[in-house]
Design a protein around this nucleic acid. Sequence first.
DNA 1: TAGTTTTTGTGATTTTTTTCACTACAAATA
DNA 2: TATTTGTAGTGAAAAAAATCACAAAAACTA
Lengths: 218, 218
Amino acid sequence: MKTNKLCIIRLSKYKNALYRLKSLGFVRVFSDNLADAVEATASQVRKDFSIFGISGNKRGGYKIDELIEKLNIILGKDELQKVIIVGLGKLGTALSRYTGFEKEEIKIVAAFDIDSTKFNQTDIKMIKLNEKTPVLALEYLPEFVRKNNIKIGIITVPDIAAQQVVDIMLSSGIKGILNFAPIRLRGNDDCIINNVNLEGELENLIYFVNASTKTKGK
Amino acid sequence: MKTNKLCIIRLSKYKNALYRLKSLGFVRVFSDNLADAVEATASQVRKDFSIFGISGNKRGGYKIDELIEKLNIILGKDELQKVIIVGLGKLGTALSRYTGFEKEEIKIVAAFDIDSTKFNQTDIKMIKLNEKTPVLALEYLPEFVRKNNIKIGIITVPDIAAQQVVDIMLSSGIKGILNFAPIRLRGNDDCIINNVNLEGELENLIYFVNASTKTKGK
DNA sequence: TAGTTTTTGTGATTTTTTTCACTACAAATA
DNA sequence: TATTTGTAGTGAAAAAAATCACAAAAACTA
Ligand SMILES: NC(=O)c1ccc[n+]([C@@H]2O[C@H](COP(=O)([O-])OP(=O)(O)OC[C@H]3O[C@@H](n4cnc5c(N)ncnc54)[C@H](O)[C@@H]3O)[C@@H](O)[C@H]2O)c1
Ligand SMILES: NC(=O)c1ccc[n+]([C@@H]2O[C@H](COP(=O)([O-])OP(=O)(O)OC[C@H]3O[C@@H](n4cnc5c(N)ncnc54)[C@H](O)[C@@H]3O)[C@@H](O)[C@H]2O)c1
């Protein structure tokens, strides 16, 4: 199965668009509706589906409910995904309070920091996963991750601290890391590290805006 | 000049890595050092530079100071980039308080919202750009953007409000938008819209982690 | 029922991006 | 000065991704 990062990203966009279409009362979609909703082409939509063996009906398009269900299974949304976050500063706080993840079956179940003024829990044994997100000392991370079988971690610590956090995560059994620190992190083959580089995104935008305003047209 | 988004993103990574190397006392770099620092290959580094006519010395590598300077010019960092943000909620607040942008010559000069409890300024005429980020009512956006010649805007409003904000930005003369709302926005040819899809990034990571744990190996 | 329309599914093709492989040259060394 | 060494620069090749184009099936039409 040929998978490519962009393709998976599109799958989650399709899924989001489908929820929106569904809430608008639609029952069916065609590849070109989806293409339009996510800024792709109709044939790309169909090719993406074909890669994952998703099929619709000729002339009838795709049934939204079925399509959502299939996409959710592919994207691992058939079960709640437990995630931890390290670094409860400005960005970490924003992420941990974001309610939008929950409807995607993603839950930030614990936060870790080294700043003791941020802790709201000290006894790891008392924590229940459905209460308000506990904020714990970093040293509890390995135990927490193992006990709760956590696979995904988010890093929102300053860049100088990020590699240290990666090392702790790796040795605790984390298998996927979403890193917001603007630095290259070294992992191992057993763990996927994806980076979100917000400075980079802004710089990129600035570059293309400057490039296009300098050359007058697009 | 063949430009591609990934290539520009790499340029900003090179630049970041160069600052780090410089602060470590290095004066020169070779393409393979840079490759290592940003997770690329040496030939990609050289090719990227060749696209932009950046050249080094055979056997001598690149002089870090010169390289930084050239990259900064390409990336538009020779002058302060003024940016506005709309939606001062959880994420918008984190971004507007982030100090890391300033060292990249990017400054969030004003924030806009519709929630009056967030405003800290009411008279647009009184605002000076070097004071604490003013938070204004959305209705002042067009005037502010025109007077201060702002080209870049960040959107951190809920998805249902995002298109409306785009429309206001476009008609005010904004040329580049960085959007955090998980929805496709419609712009025009005169304005570049880049999306940061944090849910998507997490879902993507979850997919690949699940895919690799299911198939045992990498 | 036959014909027409619409939309899927996918192999073939094109385009884009990355990697390879080799030349040229500057610096170090003998 | 001659020789060796290491690295830049770059066209060619390969790989990856996107697009095209069209046959086939389903759903309408009359
Ligand atoms: N805030 C933003 O909007 C923004 C934008 C772009 C990038 N980033 C990046 O995201 C990261 C976080 O940014 P921020 O603005 O939230 O920073 P912040 O300073 O507000 O928060 C960092 C948090 O990490 C904690 N911390 C530091 N070292 C730690 C360690 N070793 N283990 C655990 N916790 C530790 C600190 O106590 C603090 O709570 C940084 O790498 C930054 O470059 C942030
Ligand atoms: N918080 C996160 O970590 C996070 C993560 C992923 C995506 N996002 C996305 O980022 C956006 C913001 O998220 P948030 O958590 O900061 O939301 P939030 O609810 O905390 O903040 C939204 C802000 O936008 C303002 N607003 C609403 N309508 C507006 C309008 N028409 N004009 C101007 N301001 C308006 C609100 O008053 C509020 O201050 C959302 O689209 C969300 O999906 C956020």
